[in-house]
Design a protein around this nucleic acid. Structure first.
Lengths: 244, 244
DNA sequence: GAGTGGTCTAGACCACAAC
DNA sequence: TTGTGGTCTAGACCACTCG
């Protein structure tokens, strides 16, 4: 239904049917064309707008915006999906996996009782054999128990967890720069104290329960993160970094 | 209006009226409470969902998500607004302002004819006197002409441009790590070759016309960028960095 | 089975842009 | 003045969750 309309319009836009900076047909016209109500068309257009593909303004037809490149949610959460989408071979070398009591920050992030145990994994992630990122993930018990049972050569934890009914639906990301510690330097082959692009991510399932708290450290020059936002939908924010 | 409902619910949620991980009333109940239709309530809830405040799932009441902190769009685009929102005094020291022909990449980004001229500013931005960021902004002629006429002690270019009818409504951001060049090092007082957190940003007005292409380089430890996304609304993406 | 959010409809009025 | 998107309504049916 509205997804179909959105997909069709996205296709038309990205193939340049309306041209860069071109104008879309009126909502009414689209509704008639697809045989749906105007409300459904608006729902489809809301998707495109939040992806940064089109503008929207009272009084004027919608305009096609350039430079819109969006990934699916799973491509964003899963290093493995991301790698495949670029035609690279993802790798994951387990460096350590321990179970230990959670500290205060971890209890806070994963919404656990004080004293609860967590599972901590450290993995070197590679693209076609080249070291790219060190991934430190902290799992609550329910999830960690599954990860701990996995063979060490399983590349995609996300995929396995999904098969076990652990769903990832919402994530908060924070991006900044840190310096490499001894472990980072050893795994990535960079200088200790050298800069790394860090992405911290807390992911929750549909019920709002945290399922992972992860910290990924990328070698400079291997990745960049992109965000689109607009007056209408603003998801990005900028923070001072006093503490950690 | 739906904005009022959204604001009221946001207030109630952030003050903890429903508790962390608590459940919201049903849409029908909210509609009755506010005396509006269910559609309007849903519109309000869509705002909160895209801000990462609540979940949404068929069959279950909406759940309050923790860790949601969103800034207004102008706080994000304007260093000045951001500084004030943190209680800091923003500063801007103009290092250079030149007019010159645009190169190919600049024509592409600002959607200019080959050979068009652009205005390039380099400014050191400070928070309460402390150097934080070097800002390189490229303006198309229409905008640059205004900026070029400004006294050098004007802190907020964004504010002035808004008064001149130049509106900022959509932005694409890309975040990565770069090393400081000679100018960065001189202005920020860091080592040449040292790491900086870079945010590149292309901003357009309501008609989709680019109004600035900016590159901000932050000292490590001064800022972090945050994004919320979910299966429903995904604005963030991750890219490989081959070229520039 | 009862309650919930997801989707869709058909119609209405308004604010705004552009001619 | 005309056409556009923004907002709101009232009602409907469905898919899903949960007890």
């Amino acid at each position: 239904m509205y997804r179909k309309v959105a997909a069709d319009l996205r296709e038309a836009i990205t193939t340049g049917a309306y041209g860069e900076a071109g104008r879309l047909p009126a909502e009414g016209a689209l509704a008639e064309k697809y045989g749906v109500s105007r409300g459904t068309v608006r729902q489809a257009l809301a998707v495109l707008r939040s992806d940064g593909l089109v503008t929207s303004r009272r009084g004027t037809r919608r305009v096609v915006l350039g430079g819109a490149r969006v990934q699916s949610f799973s491509e964003l959460l899963s290093f493995t999906h991301w790698a495949y989408s670029m035609g690279e071979e993802p790798g994951g070398i387990l460096d350590s996996l321990v179970r230990r009591p959670a500290d205060a920050a971890e209890c806070e992030q994963l919404r656990l009782e004080p004293g609860a145990e967590v599972y901590v994994t450290v993995r070197l992630r590679t693209l076609s054999g080249t070291p790219v990122m060190v991934e430190r993930t902290i799992y609550p018990p329910r999830v960690g128990e599954i990860v701990a049972e996995l063979p060490t050569d399983v590349v995609s934890h996300t995929e396995v967890l999904r098969e076990h009914g652990i769903l990832f639906t919402d994530a908060d990301h924070t991006i900044d720069v840190v310096t490499a510690n001894a472990v980072d330097a050893r795994l990535l082959g960079c200088r200790r104290g050298g800069p790394l692009l860090r992405e911290r991510r807390r992911t929750t399932d549909p019920t709002g329960t945290p399922v992972e708290w992860s910290q990924d450290r990328y070698l400079p020059g291997t990745v960049a993160f992109s965000v689109h936002n607009s007056l209408a939908t603003s998801a990005l924010s900028r923070h001072a970094r006093d503490g950690d």
